[in-house]
């Protein structure tokens, strides 16, 4: 039994070290099955109509996430109908960050009128697998002919966290516009500025 436990632990550690850096642009996106604030379970294949997703690791408590909330809602409104809806994942351990609890996620989504699923990554396995480091951290996913999803962009939403109107590089919009136009995404990676993810011990 102990041996079995030990081998499971070492296997997990091994997986941990392999996926440590997370996914890269051009990689296949890793699927997940996470609980949404409405109680349903959501995975990449839950919605077969999409062309892709704007996957955003974000939370209630980070000032940067809060500054970007309206822009995340705007992205969903802008691109959901075109096939690229937002999927938000709350990556923080809720003991470390009580303000990000499932109940408070529901409340925040309600207060702000989120138009997209807001999932909780209880085990933080999805966050680790993607290699998300900060909130908000965006992964633009593009559906392939074989129904898998490819990572097309990783990084920030735009280049001005403080003032949306003053941003002059709109990384996520540019990436999706390129995908919609069947052209190459020009900027595929930026650094997502924000708060560190609060990991469980």
């Amino acid at each position: 039994m102990t041996l079995l436990k030990a081998s499971i632990v070492s296997l997990l550690l091994l997986i941990g070290s392999v996926v440590d850096d997370g996914v890269k642009v051009g990689d296949k996106a890793i699927d997940f099955n996470l609980k949404n604030i409405d109680g349903s379970m959501v995975s990449l294949n839950s919605n077969s109509d999409v062309k892709g997703y704007i996957l955003v690791f974000t939370c209630n408590t980070c000032p940067y996430s809060v500054m970007y909330e309206d822009r995340i809602i705007a992205l969903d409104k802008m691109y959901a109908d075109k096939g690229y809806p937002v999927l938000a994942i709350q990556p923080n351990n809720t003991e470390k960050s009580p303000g990000d609890s499932f109940e408070l996620m529901k409340q925040r989504a309600d207060d702000k009128g989120f138009t997209f699923p807001y999932l909780i990554d209880d085990t933080q396995e999805t966050t680790l697998a993607y290699g998300a480091t900060n909130t908000p951290h965006v992964f633009v996913l593009d559906k392939q002919d074989d129904s898998s999803f490819e990572v097309a962009y990783i990084g920030a939403i735009d280049n001005n966290s403080r003032n949306a109107a003053a941003a002059d590089k709109h990384y996520v919009q540019d990436a999706i516009n390129s995908l919609l136009a069947n052209s190459e995404v020009s900027t595929t990676k930026t650094k997502a500025i924000g708060c560190t993810i609060k990991w469980a011990n």
Binding site: G155, N160, A166, K169, K191, I193
Partner: peptide, 9 residues
């Protein structure tokens, strides 16, 4: 310097 990607590296 709000445009972090211009200086962070």
């Amino acid at each position: 310097e709000i445009d972090y990607n211009s200086w962070i590296d």
